[in-house]
């Protein structure tokens, strides 16, 4: 009985470890784009625990998308708790400014001023080169909503840069 329990625990640990190694890097990049490098690890960790505490998480289809959505939700929670999003994000990239001769401060500021959802959509569109349909599937929102969010984000970014 005890041996059976130990074997189960061991299998579960292995599953968690495999899932973490497979999906955490992309989730960590996504979280870094949403909340900055300082909070990214905490956000991904919390999201991962939420997902893997569900009883049948191993049979979830598209666990990668599921985790990204959980990261997005955690980022929302974090921003609700702290109302200083753009300051923190800009502060988070301070080390890069010392070595980067041409920091695009205006764009950094504009990106940091976007909402979590807008930034998630913009990141997936521009950095992952995802289509609007793919973004909709990843974040579990309608394609039309993605289109609107992306359009509003572009307007906000252009406005901030002029």
């Amino acid at each position: 009985m005890v041996e059976h329990q130990l074997a189960n625990d061991d299998a579960r640990r292995r599953q968690l470890s495999d899932a973490w190694r497979t999906y955490a890097p992309a989730a960590m990049r996504f979280a870094t784009a949403l909340v900055g490098p300082t909070d990214a690890h905490d956000v991904v960790t919390t999201a991962f625990l939420r997902v893997t505490r569900q009883p049948h998480w191993t049979s979830l289809e598209h666990l990668d998308r599921y985790l990204l959505r959980a990261v997005r939700n955690e980022a929302h929670n974090l921003y609700r708790d702290r109302q200083r999003r753009w300051q923190r994000d800009l502060r988070a990239v301070i080390p890069a400014w010392n070595t980067d001769p041409t920091p695009d401060l205006d764009l950094l500021r504009a990106v940091a001023a976007l909402s979590v959802q807008q930034r998630a959509v913009v990141f997936l569109a521009y950095w992952h080169d995802m289509t609007e349909a793919e973004i909709g599937e990843t974040l579990d929102v309608a394609r039309s909503s993605v289109h609107r969010t992306l359009a509003r984000a572009r307007v906000a970014l252009r406005k901030a840069l002029t």
Partner: peptide, 12 residues
Amino acid sequence: TFDRIVAKTPEI
């Protein structure tokens, strides 16, 4: 800009 931000991604 996103390249710069992603370059700061922490280790998992």
